[in-house]
Design a protein around this nucleic acid. Structure first.
Lengths: 116, 116
DNA sequence: CTAAAACTTGACACTGATGTGAGGGTCAAG
DNA sequence: CTTGACCCTCACATCAGTGTCAAGTTTTAG
């Protein structure tokens, strides 16, 4: 699978895929002409990367965390601490988001009531 | 209340408070010497701004939404649509975050189990 | 073999919230 | 009046992910 195919399969631009590779999140084998070649499993990997990115993890953090998703032996005490840290951050962010959702939902509800 | 006091009361830097004003999220009266002067209610307002910012709303969006938080008469059909749109976005973001949390929590749990 | 489509690297641009520093004005206590 | 703390504006820097353009190479279809 070449970069265009992976791009089409995941919705990530070719630019982004190269960037993920630069950041060490994604690897590719190169053919004779230097073009990137991906295994089918790359699709799932990119999907995971995008989920984590969308949730606000930085590429650096994802790089730290990704290896142990696919390989349980990659886990170190340091990584355990890192994971816990990120988990805390994500939960705090969810709390902020929950508050915001309540504010917005409250406004929408009030508006609907006013329309009736 | 001057900008330093509001900064201390809210945790937002003076720089940020000026930025919020530039973006039309916050207003101030100016004294003789041009210094900003805030009413006590500004504290709550800044807190709200920060909550929404932290939840990923842009200043532009907040500017759209804020007026109707304090003033129910500011509500227009356009604003209702805008609110609904943002609510949808926030809920989508919560879903991403939830997925990420589950991934991280799963890793942490697996790690803990392996340690036992 | 040739032309078009897809790929390569490299570089520069943008966005948005915030930091930072310069150069200068204001306010309150001594 | 002076001094030190606080404030003003302006402007440039940062970060991270992505867009985009350029110039050149590779692959694929005809």
């Amino acid at each position: 699978m070449r970069i265009g195919d992976l791009s089409a399969a995941t919705g990530a631009s070719a630019r982004s895929l190269r960037y993920y590779e630069d950041q060490g999140l994604l690897s590719s084998s190169r053919g004779t002409g230097g073009q990137r070649h991906y295994p089918d499993t790359a699709i799932e990997r990119v999907a995971l990367i995008r989920t984590l990115l969308t949730a606000g993890l930085s590429t650096v953090t994802i790089k730290d965390v990704l290896p142990c998703v696919s390989d349980a032996s990659a886990r170190t005490p340091w990584l355990a601490a890192r994971l816990g840290e990120e988990l805390t951050r994500v939960e705090a962010q969810m709390e902020d988001l929950r508050r915001t959702r309540d504010i917005l939902a409250g406004l929408v509800r009030d508006y609907d009531v006013a329309q009736r």
